[in-house]
Every structure is written in C-alpha cells, then in structure tokens.
C-alpha cells in the first residue's frame, strides 16, 4: 500500500510542478499557454536521452530545464504579438508539432518504438525500495523550491510588475518598464519548470513514447489549476492533489461497487472529471483555495 501511495504521490508532485509553472504563466501574467505538454515532453526526452547516453542524472536534469526554457523563448516572443485566444491555439498546435517531431525523428528519439530502459533515480545507491521514497522526497523539495521561488518573485518588485502586466499592461509601460521582456521571462521560467517535471517523469516511468504527450496532459494541468484556484500557490498544490484523487480514487471506488465493469468505470471516471470541471467553473470559480483572477 505504502509503495503504491508513494507512486501516486510522485505522479501528483510531477503534476504539481507543471501546475505551478502554468500558474506562474497564467495565474500571474495572464499568458494562456495550452502547450504545457510540449515543454514537459522536451524535458523528459532531453533528460532521458542524455542519461541513456551516459550522463549522470543531475546535469541531465539541469540541461532538461534549460532546453525547455530555451525552446519557450521564441514562443514567448510570439505571445507578445498575439492576443489570448490566438496564443492558446498556437501553443496547442506547437505541442502537437513537438509530439510529431518526436514521433518522426527516429534517429534521435526512436519514434513510436519509444525509449525503454531509462535509468531510475537513486538506483545506483543500492537502497532498493527506498529509491522511490527518495524520489518522492526530492520532488517535495523541488516543489517547495518552486513555490519559494514563486513567492519570492511575487513579493519582489519584479513580481509586482508581473502582476501589474496582467492587470494593466499600458500602465506598466507608462512607468517606463518593459512588460514584454518580463512576459517572455515568465514564460521561459514556467516552461523550465515543466521541463523539470518531464525529467522526473522520464526517470520514474522509465519508458517514453510520443503517445504519452498528448494535449490531454495539458488539459489535466489546466484542470488542476482551475480546481485549485488560479494565481494562488496553495491552489496549485491543492488542485494537483485533488486531480490525482479523482484519477486514482476511482480505482478504489470500483473495488467497492463490483457490479460496474471496467469499461463503464472508465466512462464514469471521465464523466466525473468533466462534471467536476463544469460544476467548479459555475459554482466555485475561485477554486478550492480562492483565486486572484
């Protein structure tokens, strides 16, 4: 049971990193990024390919963050030219292009055959079952660091500017600050977090293939953020935990109601996620933790 909970916890914390990154982009600056999964995928493949090529884990993780952030740069520039809805679709399309590229460039990524045998974290320490506990601990630390970074940003003069952009871009410009640079930086920062999440994912699942990076992942992250409450650090935490309870809890719900078949349960699970989204947006728009938007 404990090992299962640890596994669920690891996935929840990976989603939490993604949600914190998106929260930074949308919750604070109003950037509508529907391409979260692209940066997640880039981080995952970068770290996986480097470690399979013999790199140690730590530098591979760092490079994964950097590559995801660098790829975000041109998209961030683009976001300056486009209004919200256009940006949403462009980022969504971008994530599909990334997935297609992973699928097609077989010399690098093995395409649809996927990358098996990605090294697990802490395996070399020889601590057996504790390796996953250690992974969980590192993820908790990373999430805390991400939250800390975010709070620091929000409270700094820089962060006030970021929020000011969201509320009134023209006013920011009027006081002589360049909101454009800030926006791009925030976009890169959030994408770097997604890259880090991807690296953790790669070394936990140990097998990567392009079909793990469908837009559905992006939607799940949005769901976590909306349910938790946008623009709130605690919102990202609560949202990703609630999402996991929904996705995993239904397994146990079925063990209790045996008359429902797996096929029906799969439908019921998706229906519940859908229903939760509908009801949350109608009756609790501020999310679980209250919203700043």
């Amino acid at each position: 049971m404990i090992a299962y909970l640890i596994a669920v916890g690891i996935i929840a914390l990976i989603y939490m990193l993604l949600t914190i990154g998106l929260n930074l982009q949308y919750g604070y600056t109003g950037l509508i990024n529907f391409g979260v999964v692209a940066f997640f995928a880039i981080g995952a493949y970068t770290s996986a390919l480097l470690t399979l090529g013999g790199w140690p884990l730590v530098p591979a993780f760092v490079v994964a963050i950097i590559v995801a952030a660098i790829v975000a740069y041109p998209i961030g520039l683009l976001s300056l030219r486009l209004s919200d809805d256009y940006l949403a679709v462009v980022t969504l399309g971008f994530s599909e292009v990334v997935r297609l590229a992973i699928q097609q460039e077989r010399w690098l990524t093995h395409g649809v055959q996927g990358l098996p045998g990605i090294p697990r974290m802490f395996l070399s320490l020889g601590i057996g079952d504790y390796a996953e506990l250690a992974t969980l601990a590192v993820l908790v630390l990373c999430n805390l660091a991400a939250i800390g970074l975010m709070l620091h940003l929000v409270r700094s003069p820089y962060g006030r500017l970021i929020q000011a952009i969201r509320d009134d871009e023209v006013a920011v410009e009027a006081i002589g600050k360049d909101p454009r640079r800030l926006k791009v930086q925030v976009f890169m920062l959030g994408s770097g977090l997604a890259g880090l999440a991807g690296a953790f994912y790669a070394h936990f699942i140990t097998y990567l293939s392009p079909d793990q990076f469908l837009p559905l992942v992006t939607f799940y992250v949005w769901i976590a953020m909306i349910i938790g409450g946008t623009g709130r650090t605690t919102g990202a935490v609560a949202g990703s935990l609630i999402l996991m309870v929904f996705l995993e809890g239904s397994r146990f719900a079925r063990d209790w109601i045996p008359s429902v078949s797996e096929v029906q349960m799969a439908s019921v699970r998706l229906a519940l996620v859908g229903l939760a989204l509908i009801l949350f947006t109608i009756y609790r728009p501020q999310g679980m933790m209250g919203s700043r938007r």
Binding site: M1, Y4, L5, V8, A12, L151, V154, R155, G159, R160, Q163, A164, R232, T233, T234, V237, A238, L241, I242, M244, V245, E248, G249, F252, M288, M289, R292
Partner: peptide, 25 residues
C-alpha cells in the same frame, strides 16, 4: 497585491491533503 499564505490557506491545504490520503486507506 502581494500574497501571503495565511493560516487559513494552510488549513485548507492540509485538509485537502488529508482528504487525499484518507481515501485509499
């Protein structure tokens, strides 16, 4: 504009954490 984590936030977060972990038990 600045954001502070209040005690209520922490309570709410830990309540949902508890709810999360209670379910599969």
């Amino acid at each position: 504009m600045s954001q502070r984590i209040t005690r209520r936030d922490v309570l709410k977060a830990s309540a949902s954490l508890a709810a999360a972990s209670a379910l599969p038990r």
